[in-house]
Simulated assay, not measured.
Amino acid sequence: MARLQCLAPGEDFPPTSEALDYPNGLLAAGGELTPERLLAAYRRGIFPWFQEPEPVLWWTPDPRSVLFADELHLSRSLRKTLRKNAFELAADRHFAAVMQACAGPRRDDGGTWIGGSMVEAYCELNALGHAHSVEVYREGALVGGLYGVSMGGAFFGESMFSRVPDASKIALVALTAIMLRSGCRLIDCQVESEHLNSLGARNISRLDFERELAQTVHMDPGTIIWQLPGRCGDLL
Rank of each mutant, 00 (worst) to 15 (best):
R37N: 13
G110F: 08
G233V: 03
R106W: 12
A121R: 04
R231H: 12
W226S: 10
S17D: 14
M151C: 05
R231W: 05
E135G: 10
R138N: 04
T60M: 02
P15S: 05
E139T: 09
G111A: 06
C102T: 07
A154E: 02
S17K: 09
G31F: 08
V164Y: 00
F68D: 11
L125R: 02
E212S: 07
P165T: 00
R202E: 13
G104A: 15
F13A: 14
P165H: 00
T223K: 04
E18I: 02
R211N: 15
I187G: 09
R163T: 02
G222N: 14
L78F: 02
Q215D: 15
E52K: 06
Q215V: 11
L186Y: 01
A40C: 15
G157H: 05
C184F: 02
G116K: 13
F50A: 00
R106D: 15
I224D: 05
P9W: 10
E18A: 10
A201E: 11
S133I: 09
F47R: 05
D109W: 12
P61T: 06
G233L: 03
S193Q: 14
L89P: 04
E120Q: 14
A101D: 03
Y137T: 00
G183V: 07
R37K: 15
Y137H: 02
N126A: 07
C189F: 13
I46R: 02
D70N: 05
V119R: 14
T81C: 10
P221R: 06
A86L: 11
P63T: 03
Q100K: 15
A91P: 09
P14W: 01
I114K: 04
E54P: 09
I170E: 10
L57I: 09
R106N: 15
I114W: 04
